[in-house]
C-alpha cells in the first residue's frame, strides 16, 4: 500500500492505495466522498467526472497514484461557501435538469468545466460538450436548458418552457 496525498475540494487529504486503486475509489472509499458515482466500466457514462487540476476527467479511468499531489474538485465541493447551491447546481434545480440524480454529479462537473472554457456556449456546443455523460432520465432537454441558463443566457424561448 502506498499513501497518496492530494488536495480535494481545497483540503489536503491522504489515503492508502494499491497500484490499481482508481481515483474514483480513492474518493468514494478512501475519503467517503460518495457523490462521485460509478455507472459503467468502459469510461463511457461520465457519472464519475471530477475536475483534476481544473479539467473534467473520468475518475474511474485514472489511477490515484498517477495523480498524487493534484488538485481535485468533486461534486461535494461545488456549493458556495455558505452552503447554497453554486450557479450550475442552482440552474439544474431551477430547470429540472435531474431526475434520479445518479448521473447528476458527473453532469454538473462536466457542465461546470464546459462553462469555464466556453462561458456563452450555443445549444449545439452544450450538447457536444456533454456527449461524454449519459443521462437515462431527462432526455437531456432540461440539462441543456440548465447549462444555457447557468451561462446567463435567456432560455425562456426554449421549447416547452
Amino acid at each position: 500500500m502506498t499513501k497518496v496525498t492530494m488536495t480535494v475540494n481545497g483540503k489536503s487529504v491522504s489515503a492508502e492505495t494499491e497500484g490499481r486503486t482508481l481515483l474514483s475509489s480513492y474518493l468514494r472509499e478512501g475519503l467517503g466522498l460518495t457523490g462521485t458515482h460509478i455507472g459503467c466500466d468502459t469510461s463511457q457514462c461520465g457519472a464519475c467526472v471530477v475536475h483534476l487540476n481544473g479539467r473534467a476527467v473520468k475518475s474511474c479511468t485514472v489511477f490515484a497514484q498517477d495523480v498524487a499531489g493534484a488538485e481535485v474538485r468533486t461534486i461535494e465541493g461545488m456549493a458556495n461557501a455558505d452552503g447554497s447551491l453554486g450557479v450550475v447546481q442552482q440552474a439544474f434545480q431551477d430547470h429540472h435538469g435531474l431526475q434520479c440524480g445518479f448521473c447528476t454529479p458527473g453532469m454538473v462537473m462536466a457542465s461546470a468545466a464546459l462553462l469555464a472554457e466556453n462561458p456563452k456556449p450555443t445549444e449545439a456546443e452544450v450538447r457536444h460538450g456533454l456527449e461524454g455523460n449519459i443521462c437515462r432520465c431527462t432526455g437531456y432537454h432540461n440539462i441543456v436548458k440548465a447549462v444555457l441558463a447557468a451561462s446567463g443566457q435567456d432560455v425562456a424561448a426554449v421549447a416547452a418552457e
Binding site: L52, A56, V57, K58, A110, G132, N133
Partner: peptide, 9 residues
Amino acid sequence: IGDPAVRNR
C-alpha cells in the same frame, strides 16, 4: 476524439 473528459486525459 471521444468526449471532453477523454480528451483531457
